[in-house]
């Protein structure tokens, strides 16, 4: 079952008709029907392409949070062979909001980390909807330091509404954990590539996104606060989320223009959820290309390049 977003209503109706006709055909329809089906399918495809050509920032936020959108583990399973998950922060507990481990990308050993939102009720609960607690960030720190020790590039997959806001998280130093994770990213002598796959939510995202190259899926969003949060704080009206989404500049094209990200990974027509395998493959191409540019660079130069990249952000606007 495909789930449709509100603004996809016109496409949903066309595709429902196609399904209806197909069902009729299966029940002994004739040749004329297949013509109708093909015509309607074309129409639906065009409508979808038209719709996705000019998504508003708020619509993109809906796509970025689509329940069927490929999440971090889909990218990891699609791109990493011999994936060997590692667990725990060695201090308090395991936090499955952040997944990570070792594996091979294009045959070469790498370390991966990412926020996993989960794809059904059970896995969403297990991964706490991708909202990490301090132990999640401390696990990321542990994995990144391990990668640094063994000279393995780090790939990170960003997809979180934000770090978990709870009593236990505060008690164990959520702020300190995020700050320390960002600092660890900056200390790495190995190349780090981050891909914002869905939602890049504030400090919870930057903690594992302070990378040499930051890539973004075409319909992902990346922002300092969720549009809903900004609306309720700045406009004192949660219904103003659409305005907040537009004003905050949260889309991939806007962030590329602002120099915050380095490249956009194209998504299949109608968004990554319509063809997850194609979206994951496109991401793999982009990661490979950017990773190549660091071949042969020594650790100090890699670290220096990352530092200069972030210092330059906003200085030439």
């Amino acid at each position: 079952m495909r789930s449709y977003l509100d603004f996809e209503k016109s496409v949903a109706e066309l595709e429902a008709k196609v399904d209806e006709l197909k069902a009729m055909g299966a029940n002994g329809g004739g040749v004329e029907l297949s013509d109708d089906i093909a015509r309607l399918e074309d129409k639906a495809r065009l409508a979808l392409a038209e719709l996705y050509k000019s998504l508003t920032p708020w619509q993109r936020a809906q796509v970025a949070r689509h329940p069927q959108r490929p999440h971090a583990l889909d990218f990891i399973h699609g791109l990493i062979t011999e994936f060997t998950p590692l667990a725990g922060d060695r201090a308090f507990s395991e936090d499955e909001a952040i997944v990570g481990g070792l594996g091979r990308f294009r045959g070469e050993p790498v370390c991966v980390v990412g926020q996993e939102k989960g794809s059904d009720t059970a896995s969403r609960l297990k991964h706490n909807f991708g909202m990490a607690r301090p132990e999640g960030y401390r696990k990321a720190i542990r994995l990144m330091e391990l990668a640094d020790r063994f000279g393995l590039p780090v790939l990170s997959f960003i997809d979180t509404a934000g770090a978990y806001p709870g009593i236990d998280a505060e008690e164990r130093g959520q702020a300190q954990a995020i700050a320390a994770s960002t600092e660890t990213c900056l200390s790495l002598g190995v190349p780090m590539i981050a891909l914002v796959v869905g939602e890049g939510g504030s400090g919870g995202a930057i903690a594992i996104a302070t990378a040499n190259r930051v890539l973004m899926m075409e319909h992902a969003i990346y922002s300092v606060i969720s549009p809903e949060g900004a609306a309720s704080i700045l406009w004192r009206d949660a219904a103003k989320a659409q305005d907040a989404a537009t004003n905050m500049k949260i889309t991939a094209p806007d962030l590329l223009r602002l120099g915050v990200i380095d490249a956009i990974v194209k998504e299949p027509p109608g968004g990554a959820h319509r063809d997850p395998a194609a979206a994951v493959a496109a991401a793999g191409e982009a990661i490979e290309e950017w990773l190549k540019s660091f071949a042969g660079m020594d650790p100090a130069a890699i670290r220096q390049a990352r530092t200069e990249k972030f210092l330059a952000i906003g200085r030439s606007l």
Partner: peptide, 22 residues
């Protein structure tokens, strides 16, 4: 916290200030 009126550019001050600490 971050100055929301500067959007993502305010978020970028987190790594940028961390560089200064380093």
């Amino acid at each position: 916290g971050a100055r929301m009126q500067e959007g993502i550019l305010s978020l970028m001050q987190m790594p940028r200030t961390t560089i200064a600490v380093r």
